[in-house]
Amino acid sequence: MTVSPLRILVLLTTVALAACAAPPVSVPLGMVTTANFSDRKPHDWARRTPQSYAVHGIDVARFQRPLDWGQARINGVNFAFIKATEGGDLLDPMFADHWRGAGRSGVARGAYHFYYFCTTPQTQARWFIQNVPKTPGMLPPVLDMEWNPFSPTCTLRPPANIVRRNAQIFLRILKAHYGQQPIVYTTPDFYEKNQMGRLGGTEFWLRSTAAHPSEKYPNERWTFWQYTSTGRVPGALGDLDINVYAGSPASWENWLARRQIR
């Protein structure tokens, strides 16, 4: 079921008047709210547009100031991927704040790890597990694999077979701990260079800001699509990455029931 922001505000106002106090803004997990977003640099989509998908969400890291997650939730943030860790020793300083805020507002939340090619996958998996609690209802963990040309300490770009092998090691460790196969996030160039489609049994979260994923990732199935990095969302300051889920509201409800951490 999809619920508009106006209807939610009316319901919350009624509750507040009855209780003589303003309640925290929270929407039941899985209830789809309609996206009320804008884009500072919108793309002119030639094929199917992001707005044709019903279930939208965001991803955040330390670059985003504290959000009003309640406002974001009623305005269409149904899910959020939150950066937790990077490499084997970096914890995102905003992870705890974003994690709590999203959870309190009924946003389906998941944590992601930014892969560092100069540290073993075992070390990185242990670091993620150390810092991301196994929380009932959370989304599967995410492995973010992309080249980082701005890294001051690691310029290593291993061969494709080594990239995929290390990804599989990381994914196996996290699956054993969290009980769900992690999702893999990647970019068009990284996906092509490393033949990431050869990772069997993987659900993908794909970046494509200038074309539909079907154009950038031919024949690849995807669950989440990151379509802009210049989005504007009520409750948040500045630019945000915005994403869509591939299916309908009913499909989203079923996906959550199947893929949430127990």
Rank of each mutant, 00 (worst) to 15 (best):
residue 148 N to K: 10
residue 158 P to W: 05
residue 157 R to V: 08
residue 155 T to K: 13
residue 169 I to R: 01
residue 139 L to D: 14
residue 137 G to W: 01
residue 186 T to L: 03
residue 232 R to N: 15
residue 176 A to T: 10
residue 211 A to D: 07
residue 214 S to W: 09
residue 213 P to Q: 08
residue 205 W to Y: 07
residue 134 K to E: 13
residue 192 E to G: 08
residue 203 E to V: 05
residue 171 L to N: 01
residue 137 G to K: 01
residue 236 A to G: 02
residue 214 S to M: 10
residue 196 M to T: 06
residue 184 V to I: 14
residue 157 R to E: 10
residue 133 P to I: 12
residue 228 T to E: 08
residue 210 A to G: 09
residue 189 D to Y: 09
residue 176 A to M: 04
residue 177 H to M: 00
residue 206 L to I: 14
residue 231 G to Q: 09
residue 148 N to G: 06
residue 235 G to H: 08
residue 239 D to A: 13
residue 232 R to W: 15
residue 199 L to F: 06
residue 135 T to C: 01
residue 186 T to D: 02
residue 163 V to G: 03
residue 138 M to R: 14
residue 222 W to Q: 09
residue 157 R to N: 09
residue 216 K to Q: 15
residue 196 M to F: 09
residue 170 F to A: 09
residue 171 L to C: 07
residue 161 N to W: 15
residue 172 R to S: 15
residue 214 S to L: 12
residue 157 R to M: 10
residue 191 Y to V: 03
residue 173 I to T: 11
residue 229 S to T: 06
residue 171 L to Y: 00
residue 149 P to T: 02
residue 150 F to L: 11
residue 212 H to Y: 08
residue 226 Q to I: 03
residue 241 D to E: 07
residue 153 T to W: 05
residue 161 N to M: 13
residue 226 Q to Y: 01
residue 156 L to W: 05
residue 177 H to W: 00
residue 202 T to S: 05
residue 177 H to T: 01
residue 195 Q to H: 12
residue 154 C to A: 07
residue 174 L to S: 05
residue 237 L to Y: 14
residue 216 K to D: 15
residue 158 P to T: 10
residue 188 P to V: 03
residue 229 S to G: 07
residue 193 K to W: 05
residue 192 E to A: 14
residue 199 L to H: 07
residue 162 I to C: 02
residue 144 D to I: 00
residue 163 V to Y: 01
residue 239 D to L: 11
residue 201 G to M: 14
residue 226 Q to T: 01
residue 180 Q to M: 02
residue 200 G to D: 09
residue 225 W to C: 12
residue 151 S to F: 13
residue 229 S to E: 05
residue 228 T to H: 04
residue 161 N to P: 12
residue 167 A to S: 10
residue 208 S to D: 08
residue 218 P to G: 06
residue 227 Y to E: 10
residue 137 G to S: 00
residue 193 K to I: 07
residue 180 Q to A: 02
residue 200 G to L: 04
residue 188 P to N: 04
residue 157 R to K: 15
residue 181 Q to M: 12
residue 153 T to D: 09
residue 237 L to W: 12
residue 142 V to F: 06
residue 217 Y to Q: 03
residue 197 G to A: 10
residue 230 T to Q: 11
residue 220 E to C: 13
residue 144 D to Q: 00
residue 231 G to H: 08
residue 221 R to C: 11
residue 163 V to I: 12
residue 229 S to A: 05
residue 202 T to D: 01
residue 189 D to I: 07
residue 158 P to N: 11
residue 196 M to N: 03
residue 194 N to Y: 06
residue 173 I to K: 03
residue 237 L to F: 13
residue 148 N to Y: 09
residue 242 I to S: 04
residue 143 L to F: 02
residue 156 L to G: 02
residue 197 G to P: 04
residue 185 Y to Q: 10
